[in-house]
Design a protein around this nucleic acid. Structure first.
Lengths: 116, 116
DNA sequence: CAGAATCCTTTACGATACTG
DNA sequence: CAGTATCGTAAAGGATTCTG
């Protein structure tokens, strides 16, 4: 993902921009879990049972580069690294909640459709 | 994209589900433009100058399969096909607006960062 | 006009092994 | 504990040509 690519439409590019930042298979989920507060690397890994270490590192670094996540390294042994949302990351809360709420309703609608 | 894949986390899977439906390079944008009302195939194509016909057809079909978009074919010549949001598609409005609003703020924050 | 068909490239993502 | 380093696959996306 480039820094700020030239977006493809005039009216909707903010939509596009946001989706580029929180899209992909894991980022939205990571941000959502970080809404609950600071988390360590392995704690996040436990929350996303199917993510690989490679992807977790990867996605966290991209979120950090985007200014949404802060990475705090403690020079201890064994190492400890804590991830938290930046101010800008926290400002995503309404977006993430909207995604969650709509998803819940959609899943329920699917379920009641399946029984019909 | 499968119908309803088994999601990867308990707490966040509604977030995951929504992102799977509106994610990708074009879907969010298409839905956003359809908020303005019914659009024809080529009208949508003009709104997304860089999309290929293949992708446009593709994404519209997936949105239709998800129950978010309605496809109305008129048996005329030249052919006319109109796309509109279903009730469920319209219910995405708050989500799409949240994405847009946050994106606008983020882009502004980037800009004021660049001049500093 | 609104696509279908074909082919191709790129990127995302995953599995596994190793390390300070 | 929190990563790197390689390697490999699959899916997403794109270019081009053709058609009712």
């Amino acid at each position: 993902m480039a820094k700020h690519p030239s977006f493809d439409c005039v009216a909707g590019c903010p939509v596009e921009a946001t989706l580029e930042l929180i899209g992909g298979k894991w980022k939205g989920l990571l941000l959502y879990h970080l809404l609950d507060g600071t988390q360590r690397f392995n704690a996040l890994k436990r929350m996303l049972p199917n993510i690989t270490q490679r992807m977790l590192t990867n996605q966290l670094r991209e979120l950090e580069a985007a200014g949404l996540v802060h990475r705090q390294v403690y020079a201890e042994v064994p190492p400890r690294v804590e991830y938290s949302l930046t101010e800008q990351g926290r400002s995503l809360a309404p977006v993430l909640h909207a995604l969650r709420d709509w998803g819940e309703a959609y899943i329920k609608a699917l379920a009641s459709r399946d029984v019909s």
